[in-house]
Amino acid sequence: MSSNPNESAGPVTMMQAPLYLQYRFTAGTSSLSFLHAIKRGRLIGRRCPGCESVYIPCRGSCARCGVATCDNIELTDEGVIDKFTVVHIPIPNNPIKPPFVVAHIRLNGADNAFHHLIGEVDNDKVKLGMKVKAVWRPESEWDYGLDNIRYFKPLGGEHD
């Protein structure tokens, strides 16, 4: 009976079944102004026609009001640290060396915050409410994304 040569090899408890699917991502119509602007090193948010809040980046609606955003609003690359943490966790293949600061940054004139890195300051000197400014990558590296900003650094003299 026992003609199966694998019978003595024990049970199969795990197998690899790699899966590759290709997707052509799209960002959303209202993201276009933001993406085209950041490719040129500029920051464009959008305003809610209801509550007048300004969102950057904007996905097409004011989530609070549930209405489509309308006007494009140009913002500067300066803002404040709304919330932050110092990340120590080592994640394989992470090009960013821990410990590093991840902050919620609210640009001046914007009503929402986005996640980004903080640089050019000791991690233990970072504070809530600290004023920061974007440090951009070289123009030759600019693409359609917030990664064009390498990190945000404290505005000189604003922190103690």
């Binding site: 943490t85 990340v87 994640i91 992470n94 986005f114 809530l128 917030l146």
Partner: peptide, 21 residues
Amino acid sequence: QPFATHLNAGAGGFFAPLIRE
């Protein structure tokens, strides 16, 4: 995801700033 920053911070990277607050 294209167009977003990729900060490699995991779930804790999202919640830790709220906890500090």
